[in-house]
Simulated assay, not measured.
Amino acid sequence: MLTTRRARILVDVFVGLQVLLTLVSAVIVAAEGMWREVGLGLAGTVVVIVAWVSYRRGRSRVAPPLLLVGAFGTAFTDTGVVSVGFMMLALAIMVLEVGLRAGLWAAGAVVVGLAALTWSVRESWAAVLFQTIGNVVVMTLGLIVGLTLRQIRAEQVENQRLLRELRAAIDTEKELMLADERARSARELHDGLGHRLTLISMSLEYARRVRGRDDAQAWSEVENAQVEAKDALAYMRRWVRALNPPREPNLEGIAALEAIADSFRGTGLTVRVAQNGDEQQLGKDASLFAYRLVQEGLTNVLRHSAADQVAITVNWREGRMEIELRDNGGAVGEGTPESPPPGQAADGGFGLRSLSERARELGGSFEVKRDDDGVVLQGSIPVGSGV
């Protein structure tokens, strides 16, 4: 079939107009009393319609020969414009669906057939030669159109194959990143929470052994266990918030950033949100990018940083929003073991890479850096993105 729905519709219109011209020509010929030609022309028109309907229903190898036969029939009632148009279409479809060799054989048969028809009507070698030259040119154009369509379809098939491979590779990369992130999170959770639970167990075990002999020491160990239990609970809450950050889909702009910042303040972080300039209307995609940047930054601080303060600053420029998230210490990225020197950009994990890709898609930029105070996330995007 033709490569796109738009192309099929355009050819549908072309065939419809050609059929209409054939009917008009048949009426003119009928007025001159040439009833045999009218019959052949109408029969050819019916064959053309059947051939095109067959092609549109997927019978791609049957349609081109039928179109050629029908085109010869329409030649009896017109001056050659309509029939030649049908023949060009038939040759193009034959090359597209069958191949160039079949198209060349069909083109040769068309040229010879039309020459014989011209000779039988006009009985002039000059007219036959002139008509044959024109038919060769037209048939060549039909072959070129068919080759072009065949090349376009081959490229589309190849592009679809490459797209499937790219999507598969992206999905695989995502799975590997997520698996690595889960493994890293499991290790950190095991080390942090496991250490605290071990201390609680040791304190309670020691209190049990000295109970009755040294009650004061036993109660002291119980108090230590209680402190460690509270610390473990706070640590667990931080991880739960980091692994499942809140979402505020009904808020936009500064209100959305303030809401997510507030939800992280209960984890022990001091989060400040400020803006410079007059707030502008954000597009859907721009608003989502800003929300994800803050969410990802705060989540990384909880999971991988020793920072206890985060400053979020939004600068409104002419047609752009610049957003900065800055903490006061800790490693860069999602579980990155070492931080780069101050001023040097850092490669983060999957979340930060996604933010960088999304910023480029929106016509903006995103980067992660380390300065003397801590980690800095900076993003800049047009405010109307995704309106």
Rank of each mutant, 00 (worst) to 15 (best):
F14P: 01
A26F: 07
V29H: 03
G33S: 04
W35E: 04
V46R: 07
V50E: 07
V53Y: 11
G58N: 06
S60T: 15
L67R: 01
A75D: 02
T79E: 13
V81N: 05
M88V: 15
A90T: 09
L91A: 02
A92T: 07
L96D: 05
L114K: 08
A127I: 15
V128H: 04
V145G: 05
A154C: 06
L163E: 10
R164Q: 14
E173D: 12
K174F: 13
E175H: 14
E175C: 03
A179Q: 11
R187K: 11
E188S: 15
H190L: 09
H190G: 07
G194S: 05
R196A: 10
T198V: 11
R208V: 14
R211W: 07
D215E: 11
S220G: 13
V222S: 03
A225Y: 06
R241W: 08
L243T: 11
G253C: 01
A259E: 04
A259Y: 06
D262H: 13
F264P: 00
F264D: 01
F264M: 03
R265V: 09
V271I: 08
Q275N: 12
A290R: 08
L293A: 09
V301K: 03
A307T: 12
V310P: 00
A311M: 08
T313D: 04
M321Q: 08
L325W: 03
P342K: 07
L352C: 04
A359L: 05
R360F: 09
L362I: 10
